Simulated assay, not measured.
Amino acid sequence: ACARSLGIPARYVSGYLFTDSEDHLASHAWAEAWLDDAWYSFDVTNCLAKPERHLKLAVGLDYLDACPVRGMRRGGGIEQMHAQVEVAPLVRVQQQ
């Protein structure tokens, strides 16, 4: 919103961040701004400006546009939701 107020196109990005720690598997979000004819990532939480370890799932103007899970429930009863995430680097095979 701050970048857009300055006339800089910007968007909210949700996804995952690859880390070496299995304890850090959770959804993540960062911002991107359109500068010099390209989208640039700004992950202020992890002080990263290159999306080398980011897995982008959705983009939008804000969280509601790009939230990883969204829904509505009506009625009583018991409800449970479980999710499992595994993020790993892509192993590329070098062609000879």
Rank of each mutant, 00 (worst) to 15 (best):
V93A: 07
S14V: 06
R53P: 00
T45Q: 12
C2F: 07
D65Q: 09
G75M: 04
D36E: 15
G15D: 01
G75D: 05
L57P: 05
A49V: 07
A26G: 11
L90R: 04
N46R: 11
I8T: 00
D43R: 00
R11F: 06
Y63I: 06
R73H: 15
S21G: 00
L35S: 05
G71K: 07
G60W: 09
L35P: 01
A83Q: 01
R73A: 12
C2S: 09
P51R: 13
L48G: 00
P51Y: 05
R92S: 03
L48H: 08
S14E: 10
G60D: 10
E86I: 11
V59Q: 02
P89W: 12
G71P: 10
S41F: 12
L35G: 02
A3M: 08
H82P: 04
M72T: 11
I78P: 04
K56Q: 12
S5D: 15
D37I: 00
A58D: 09
H54W: 14
P89S: 04
S5P: 06
L25R: 10
W34Q: 01
I78C: 14
C2E: 06
A38S: 13
V44H: 06
D20A: 14
D23R: 02
Q94L: 14
V13E: 06
G75I: 03
P68K: 02
D23G: 08
Y16V: 03
N46G: 02
V93C: 14
C47A: 09
R74E: 10
S14W: 03
V69L: 15
S5E: 15
D23Y: 04
V44W: 08
A83R: 02
R70V: 12
R53G: 00
L55A: 12
S5F: 13
G76N: 10
E32D: 10
G71W: 05
V85L: 11
E52Y: 03
V87T: 01
S14G: 06
Y63G: 06
H24Y: 13
A1H: 14
G60E: 05
S27A: 08
E32R: 01
G77Y: 10
L61S: 12
D36S: 13
H28Y: 04
G60I: 00
L17T: 01
L35M: 13
R53W: 07
L55T: 03
Y16M: 12
A26H: 06
S41D: 12
V85M: 07
V59G: 06
S41H: 11
Q94H: 13
V91Q: 12
A33S: 03
G75S: 08
A3S: 02
G60A: 00
V91T: 05
A88F: 10
E22M: 07
G15W: 02
